[in-house]
Design a protein around this nucleic acid. Sequence first.
DNA 1: CAGGATCCGCAAAGATACTG
DNA 2: CAGTATCTTTGCGGATCCTG
Lengths: 108, 108
Amino acid sequence: MDKQHSQCPVEFTVNMVGGKYKLVILYQLATHEVRRFNELRRELPNITPRTLTRQLRELESDGLINRQVYPEIPPKVEYSLSETGKSLNSILLQIENWGLKHIVNKPK
Amino acid sequence: MDKQHSQCPVEFTVNMVGGKYKLVILYQLATHEVRRFNELRRELPNITPRTLTRQLRELESDGLINRQVYPEIPPKVEYSLSETGKSLNSILLQIENWGLKHIVNKPK
DNA sequence: CAGGATCCGCAAAGATACTG
DNA sequence: CAGTATCTTTGCGGATCCTG
């Protein structure tokens, strides 16, 4: 209900990027500039179109990504980071690096 | 099921810190060194004890925090960041700063 | 190609009460 | 103080099929 009640800054940020795939999507856009719907689908092997659509829409309505529609046939839609989204770049890279460092100590 | 299948580093990290309150808890421990159960409860006004316990236990079993039990009466338990948890410090601070910068542009 | 429409399951979280 | 025990809820994401 009070999603935007967002007491503290950390909670505020989590509410923006806290979806199951949102950070991965943002990371994709951070490293590829522009991605199309089915490109993202391929990067996220287990995601369903419905879920991908929802995550993208939420990111868009939170102002983190841009959705560029080309009125052609077949349809073409390009997703990219907004300026606000780009301000997450350094965090995204650190999250990736942290994962790289600790993913190895984790087997078994 | 395949929580630890964790394809990419970003997803791996998200699986570790992706709980609704986990980053806030980690941030508390990053800025206060040590926190007790009810102290954390006060910082997270809406959390229930059951949920707090679970988030703490998951963070502990993922090796991000330490749980120090003092066998006294009344009981005393202190939570703190492990070395692995401390390696998240810079990310936690950046997340807070990002929230501080963008929480203002967000009203209405 | 980029989704929309439906239906559904389940894990995550909330509410409330109780305890060593 | 630091939890546990139950029960209930919710809402995210999955599965499947359909379409401009």
